[in-house]
Design a binder for these strands. Structure first.
Lengths: 191, 191
DNA sequence: CAAATATATGAGCATTGCTCAGAAACGAAA
DNA sequence: TTTCGTTTCTGAGCAATGCTCATATATTTG
């Protein structure tokens, strides 16, 4: 637990250095010694704030995850329509455009999180939201409702993530968003 | 290029050893020295057949990919029904049950392929097949047909991959398969 | 000011991916 | 069978990386 202000500053410096290295040089260049050097601290200090290399990536991932969650909540707050399709579109739009800014760093973080099998922590909120949606609209609490929420959330996230990873040119095109909305609406209507 | 029979045997032994280690001990235990030791060859020999560590994982991924493709073709050959839903089910069933029961090895290989941004190579055939399907059933060659095929293939693969990654208990349950079929059928019908 | 606490240092250890100089096994011609 | 070029195999060891620990410095507290 950090007591002094400089401790927080050091921790922040390490995270910023990590994000910079990921953005500029990719995952391969992301070594603990490199991060410490760029942050201007010794390697020992780095390990005083993070248990291991993964912990740095996890901290960045949690930051980003919280930021996206906040964006979704904010976007939904401004929507007063009763119809579900616009709501669905808002969420999908936000998720697609969340991958802006530090593209490479985000990609690297997502890669790392997935490579270490830690995706569940970050997908759980999406699943919960999806379950709510599915329950309300399709009224399904019975058998297979867990599977339904899973398929719904993972299929959408899977498609978006694939587009990001493969750097598909239509990632931010309206047509892509349309198709995802259609997918969700069609699936929710099917019974 | 292997000239003698023992060369092929050595290569196969290395791949088998790699798969065994991945299955039994996971990705962390997958070191080149461990693979060489289990295969009963020296580390130097291993590097005569594979450029680097990744090449071993890629070779396994290609084997499995080819095997799944063959299974799908074979399964579809024996199907003479006109309805599309059974065809879709066959493909999804095959995709879910891929990798011959070696669950952990599958996860590790997918992780590795994913982490190195090589997913496109293995998803391209699925996309082609999906595009064919979408064109025939929804008759769409016009605008957005690329996006449609992409969303269709990536959403299904994304959901299956997520279930593998998160070791969801319902991965091989009928209910999961049902939901995926429903997703595809509903999306194809939506216009 | 002194003691206690919090933060920072970096040499160096263990492990891993991989190289390379040479040895062993093999195939075919003599 | 012997010889000799080719193919295959060997494993000590190098460079790089994740991480530890004994020690030093900075800050707060009494």
């Amino acid at each position: 637990m950090p007591r002094q202000a400089r401790a927080q500053a050091t921790r922040a410096a390490i995270l910023e250095a990590a994000a910079q290295i990921l953005e500029r040089d990719g995952l391969a260049a992301f070594t603990t010694n490199a991060v410490a050097a760029r942050a201007g601290v010794s390697i020992g200090t780095l390990y005083q704030y993070f248990d291991d290399k993964d912990a740095i990536l996890l901290a960045i991932a949690r930051q980003e995850s919280a930021s996206v969650a906040a964006l979704v909540v904010q976007a939904l707050d401004g929507d007063t329509s009763v119809d579900s399709a616009p709501r669905i579109r808002i969420v999908i739009h936000t998720l697609i455009h969340a991958f802006g800014g530090r593209q490479r760093a985000r990609k690297a973080v997502v890669q790392a999180v997935f490579a270490r099998g830690l995706a569940e922590e970050f997908l759980a909120p999406v699943t919960r939201f999806t379950a709510m949606l599915a329950d309300r609209l399709a009224g399904g609490h019975g058998a297979g409702s867990r599977e339904r929420a899973f398929v719904l959330s993972r299929s959408v996230m899977g498609a978006i993530r694939a587009a990001v990873f493969e750097e598909q040119p239509f990632l931010k095109a309206r047509s892509f968003e349309d198709e995802l909305v259609r997918l969700v609406v069609a699936y929710l209507a099917a019974r």
